[in-house]
């Protein structure tokens, strides 16, 4: 579904990602673990075309997207929930979700999105900026889903969210995957969440993937070692 090969990304002169190779199968949930500053956000941004790719290729369903603009990549089925949510704060909840409709071409937000996040239905007319952090996270996911993606990218969705809600989010993500048959790539620092949600766990360190384990038979201690400082 999503194929990343030999991906090099740099900010100016300093290279941050040194040739990543990741393949994500249809319907698969992949967690990318790594400490602060290891390049998770950079990877997400380069997949979305926010940070330019230096070399390497990113393919969606076989189509090369690494030279395309962000909105063209969305049209090819990528959707993005950024670190910090980045919702449009002066627009209402409903309008926020509707911004995703441009890509899908739908006329109205489909009911199943509100079914997934009932809070958003209640707060439809509120300004996005006045929602709590957890509600904003749901809004950012709803907005991404409105584009009808094939691959959903989430950058540290658990950041600043309390443990009970984190478990619920893992359930929601799996439900999204099951109902919509899409692939999910999620970057994480919380190991328990990654183990909850993922089919495969990768570890990124200094811009390189150093581990790639299937969920079954994973060695938690080994991975935890890479996450502690």
């Amino acid at each position: 579904m999503l194929q990343i090969s030999g991906l090099h990304v740099a900010y100016g002169q300093s290279e941050v990602l040194h040739g990543l190779d990741v393949a994500v199968a249809p319907g698969e949930i992949v967690a990318i673990m790594g400490r602060n500053g290891m390049g998770k956000t950079t990877l997400m941004k380069s997949l979305m075309g926010i940070v330019p790719t230096k070399s390497g290729s990113v393919r969606m369903d076989g189509t090369e997207v690494s030279g395309l603009r962000s909105w063209e990549r969305v049209a090819h089925g990528l959707a993005y929930v950024p670190q910090g949510r980045m919702i449009f704060s002066t627009m209402t909840v409903e309008e926020n979700i509707e911004t995703g409709l441009v890509a899908s071409g739908d006329k109205a937000v489909s009911d199943d999105i509100y079914e997934l996040f009932p809070v958003l239905l209640e707060m439809k007319k509120r300004r996005g900026g006045n929602l709590s952090g957890g509600q904003q996270q749901q809004l950012a996911i709803a907005r991404a889903l409105a584009t009808k993606p094939k691959v959903l990218l989430l950058d540290e969705p658990t950041e600043g969210i309390q443990p009970s809600i984190i478990r619920e989010m893992a359930r929601t993500l799996k439900r999204i995957r099951d109902e919509r048959a899409l692939s999910i790539v999620v970057s994480e620092q919380v190991l328990s969440f990654a183990l909850d949600v993922a089919d495969r766990v990768l570890v990124i360190e200094n811009g390189e993937i150093i581990r790639d384990d299937a969920r079954a038979g994973i060695n938690e201690a080994e991975i935890a070692k890479h996450l502690s400082i």
Partner: peptide
Amino acid sequence: RWGRQVRAVVQNRVMAGAVGINTE
């Protein structure tokens, strides 16, 4: 619908592009 796109771009150009709006 057009205005919604305009306001999204005004608020956050990068994010507007990343939800599929042709910012150019």
